[in-house]
């Protein structure tokens, strides 16, 4: 009996190696179910995006056709041209203002997000390293309060920010956003980086200590280079947060960055969806490209940042 039982797995294993992809052999039905589900998944993700892209590439006249031309007969880049130059001609929205403000807003979004990345990597990097390697009394409490800070609604703290920034005279400047965004990017960056430092072997630092390097030198000369993947991942996630943020920018500035500008588009009378679609596509390109390039890093960091 025992022999038969032992035999069975072996014969199964052999059959496995013949499967094309090296996995368990799969029945035809299972394959059909899987590919049908993949198709469904692709439609769920891509249909809205496809709708957006097509809308940005057709004329208002084409858009008016019912049903919506899922595969358009012809395409045009006029919408992109008009939102980038503010040259609305006769084909666009009522306000040339909104169109001509897109490029400056993209510039501001890049500026805010980039400064935020540098500041956060510096501040959160030091903090995360300290928490990971030199825990002090109260460091657990600090980590815990960082996690709990996630439940504080932005809307609950925006009032005091508004008042303080008005007094400082920095309302409607990128600095209002660079300062206030720390509320959510700093905790995120600290969690991701602390988790990353926790996984780095301590032996290297001990060797550096024996060689007479100071603790600060060790951090900058030894740790920073080997922690690069973690720093890149944290940087990408911070950039994404800065790029996507809408609420603070809506309240603290006059449509300075891209998201509130896009929202503002919708309340302008006589604008058309084609132009807004073109602007929306452009606002999606930087985050999507960035994330696809750094896919592996980002997913790892996201998992760490969420679980911890």
């Amino acid at each position: 009996m025992a022999n038969i039982a032992l035999d069975k797995p072996r014969s199964r294993k052999r059959a496995t190696s013949f499967a094309a992809s090296g996995g368990r052999p799969r029945s035809l039905t299972a394959s059909i179910v899987i590919y049908a589900s993949v198709a469904l998944f692709a439609l769920w993700v891509l249909l809205p995006v496809w709708y957006l892209v097509v809308s940005s590439l057709i004329t208002p006249a084409q858009l008016g056709i019912k049903p919506f031309p899922i595969v358009p007969s012809s395409i045009t880049f006029d919408n992109y041209w008009s939102v980038l130059t503010g040259d609305t001609g006769s084909k666009g929205f009522g306000s040339t203002d909104v169109g001509s403000r897109l490029l400056p807003a993209i510039g501001q979004s890049f500026f805010v997000s980039s400064v935020l990345v540098i500041l956060n990597l510096l501040i959160a990097g030091h903090a995360a390293y300290g928490l990971s390697r030199y825990p002090f009394s109260g460091s657990r409490l600090f980590e815990l309060s960082i996690i709990i800070s996630r439940v504080i609604p932005a809307i609950a703290i925006i009032g005091p920010f508004f008042v303080a920034f008005r007094v400082m005279g920095i309302l409607n400047t990128p600095w209002a956003l660079i300062i206030s965004y720390n509320v959510f990017t700093l905790p995120l960056a600290i969690m991701i980086l602390k988790n990353y430092f926790d996984q780095l072997p301590r032996e290297i630092e001990e060797a550096a200590k024996i060689d007479g390097a100071s603790r600060m030198q060790t951090l900058w000369i030894i740790i920073v280079p080997i922690a690069k993947p973690g720093l890149v991942a944290a940087g990408v996630l911070i950039f994404l947060e800065g790029w996507s943020e809408f609420f603070y920018s809506l309240v603290l500035t006059n449509q300075l960055t891209v998201p509130p500008l896009l929202a503002g588009f919708q309340s302008v009378q006589q604008f058309n969806w084609n132009s807004l679609a073109a602007a929306t596509v452009m606002s999606m390109i930087p985050p999507v490209v960035l994330v696809i390039i750094f896919q592996r890093h980002v997913v790892g960091a996201l998992t760490a940042g969420a679980v911890k």
Binding site: F41, A42, V45, L46, L47, P48, V49, W50, Y51, L52, V54, S55, L63, G64, K66, P67, F68, I70, L240, W243, S244, E245, F246, P259, L262, A263, Q266, W273, L276, A277, T280, S283, M284, P287, V288, L290, V291, I292, Q295, V298, V299
Partner: peptide, 30 residues
């Protein structure tokens, strides 16, 4: 592909779906 919706800003998701679900030019209706 799985990453695309996550990388899209929340506000953009709102705008995208507002128009996707629109009663006259929306793709969902089509």
């Amino acid at each position: 592909m799985l990453i695309i919706p996550w990388a899209t800003p929340w506000l953009v998701i709102g705008i995208l779906w507002k128009w996707y679900a629109d009663g006259s030019v929306g793709g969902l209706n089509a």
